[in-house]
Amino acid sequence: MKKTIFFLLMLTSIAISTEAQDIYFTRTGKIEFHSGSSLEDIDGVNNEATSMLNVKTGEMAFTLLVKSFTFKRALMEEHFNENYMESTKFPKASFKGKITSMPAINTSSNGSFNVQTEGELTIHGITKKITAPAKLTVNGGKITGVSNFKIVLSDYKIEIPGVVAEKFSKETEIIVTCIYEPRS
């Protein structure tokens, strides 16, 4: 009997430890966006996004501080936070979703996989379902995830005043680059 208990306990602890090993993590995820038109470049970069990826289930989560976006022009950064994103009211943006039909990834052998993702994107306090293509590349035990998709600002109730509307493109391109490492 005691042996059985011990065995079962062993099993559960093994189950827990495998769970932990499946999770890949980054604190320096790069999220870029391009919202400008031919009149003006409106580009922001955030190098401090945190993200987790479960390589077994394909689940993933991203979160970032809106204030950490940097711009080439200081005033643009101020307007981004004050007028458009209202970053005091909505300090975070996040994405929670999964890779549909997650390929069997062996993190010990290099390779790359084209995948589809879907989930909920929260910007400016508004949550919308989105889908986006992505590419996962395994190299030396690290996983690089890259995705490129477009959103429409008005979907997230980000208002652009008429006077500057021509400076904005209709759709905002978002580029995600995350280099994940196993979570210790």
């Binding site: 987790m52 989560a61 979160t63 929670k96």
Partner: peptide, 16 residues
């Protein structure tokens, strides 16, 4: 408990 911790968003929030 394992299930709880697998909610990635919660884990991420704790991490941040």
């Amino acid at each position: 408990q394992v299930k709880d911790t697998t909610d990635l968003m919660d884990m991420l929030d704790k991490e941040t």
